[in-house]
Design a protein around this nucleic acid. Sequence first.
DNA 1: GGGAGGCCAGAGAGCGCTCTCCAGGAGATC
DNA 2: GATCTCCTGGAGAGCGCTCTCTGGCCTCCC
Lengths: 348, 348
Amino acid sequence: MSTRAGRGGQNPTMDQVAEAAGVSRATVSRVINGAPTVDARIREMVERAIAETGYVPNVAARSLVTRKSNSVALVISEPDRPYDSSFLNRIFTDPYFGRITAGATAALRPHDIHLVIIPTDSTDHHHVLRYLRQGHVDGVLLISSHEQDPLPRQVHDLGIPAVVSARPATPLATSFVDVDQRLGSRLAADRLLARGCRRLATISGPLDMPAALDRLDGFRSYLADRGFPGVPSVEGDFTRHGGEEGARRLLADHPDVDGLFVASDLMAEGALRAVQDLGRRVPDDLAVVGFDDSSAALDCRPLLTTIRQPVEEMAAEMAEVLMAHIASPGRLPRSVTFQPTLVVRESA
Amino acid sequence: MSTRAGRGGQNPTMDQVAEAAGVSRATVSRVINGAPTVDARIREMVERAIAETGYVPNVAARSLVTRKSNSVALVISEPDRPYDSSFLNRIFTDPYFGRITAGATAALRPHDIHLVIIPTDSTDHHHVLRYLRQGHVDGVLLISSHEQDPLPRQVHDLGIPAVVSARPATPLATSFVDVDQRLGSRLAADRLLARGCRRLATISGPLDMPAALDRLDGFRSYLADRGFPGVPSVEGDFTRHGGEEGARRLLADHPDVDGLFVASDLMAEGALRAVQDLGRRVPDDLAVVGFDDSSAALDCRPLLTTIRQPVEEMAAEMAEVLMAHIASPGRLPRSVTFQPTLVVRESA
DNA sequence: GGGAGGCCAGAGAGCGCTCTCCAGGAGATC
DNA sequence: GATCTCCTGGAGAGCGCTCTCTGGCCTCCC
């Protein structure tokens, strides 16, 4: 198909295309970049020459002058945690990150912008920062969910366009996209109450994550307002295994619990296993509501009733906001909040 | 820390560093690239100037002349399959890809080479090919496991350095890294036989994947040689759900099976669930051996006995071979085969 | 018929870096 | 003391592209 003209296996350059088409380099450039001021006949000649030579623009040369790379980074920042042997394993096992990637890719593709996925733990932040400063990418989508993570501030200080995946723990003049966590936990509480559950409990995410804290506090304070103070909780780690452990601990201390809010579907999957191992029927003896509505909810038996977080849409919005920042660097930061919804299945 | 000198928020250039250090641009370049022919005092002056100005080399300018991008692509090619609503969800949910990423990253990092992760389905191969041709990366690690996948050949035809994750279905002059699949299934068969199982069966991967076919055929032909012809099998899809379904179908047709080889840990996890739902005890009534030794093996109850595939090491080897190809483009393709090992836990 | 104005292609100056070639100085050798 | 060699740093030519400026050719209008 492509003839790979040019000498010695080298890719053909724009000059060679220009020569083949009998026009100047500038005209070839105009055709490639879709400038409107090119005569149709000449455009066609150039396009033929491009096809014949198998020409593909050299991105390095292009971005040297445009100062654009047409790619953005998706930085997934996770601290090293003692109970994770490999953080990459966690990232590539939690459906959340797949959904983020899918949403961002979908939004960027029409603009022909590439997504460079960069997982990072706290030991190599400097690698990431250097990568960003070197101009590999035009902007950053930053997935960071831990309170103490210094990366959002460090990226912000770099001065390159960035959008963070959640409201930063400490105020930062950066754009972010988030979901109304507290509303989500209220929806869960309402569902459990509506089913007639009266002895509620929750398995939270890691309490150094603002999102986890919001879900926990939203759940407990909402219930406290409705006459259920002191709802017990145990801390999980957003893994299947953590959910299983958490449920075991919780039920050991509070065997009479009849309604359980688990702060992620993955944990809920583990929790269901523990609950059923203990001989409780779900939802009859114990109703369970998850959070996320990820693919894990459908892996559960019974199918998991959960709070839907529109992760794909949120990631797409992050990408849109980022592209706006890239297009007009002066633009002020903005935040977008999405509403979660209740998805009723079998477990509650 | 970095002063961000230079005008108007622009990153400082090498010329500005040279001026600050009182040397020429060439000397700054030499310092940055670690040339040995620089006097220690001058080197120090330059380094100070770099620190003061907060200089970071512009990668576009650099790679324009070096013709190197210092990054390689990890292309994960999965066909669209009817039973996958989102292939990204599959990729980000199967521990295999996390292990690949971890192994490749570990090997590349010491060489300061970045990994660009590119998931792709059959609908956007042309995007990927264009990306590769544009010179964004110096080479490709290609994860492709389906027989009909045209991508390995297409990438090969591009003429850029590439290493494939498995022996290509149709011969191709490309380097690849693989595991001895048939040996793996023999190890599984031996383990089951050694436990005293006599009514064996297997849940295979998709039969359009050479790796799945090798595991299936290796298992069956080895057993046939030892007096167990016609071992029953059902086809799975390498997902947890597929394993569950497969086990149900298998046990419906062959209720007396007492030893089961499941061609991936993820499927084994699902199979265990189905088996236990049917009231069979593992391993007493039915012994189960998985394949991979991924994190999923530890999510199983009982813990999964499995065939260890050294995926991280294999990915690291792929990266090493790729770097060798990049360093000396003339080099002939080579293949590396790893040996799987039996990991005994509880399920068999 | 002549001048103004519009349209479209070409010329050429960079973008920021690497790397070859060259020059100058220090040290070594006779 | 003169010549040669070695070592180190500077000058400058590109890498392949974009984009502004320039200028030629039409068309149109008075």
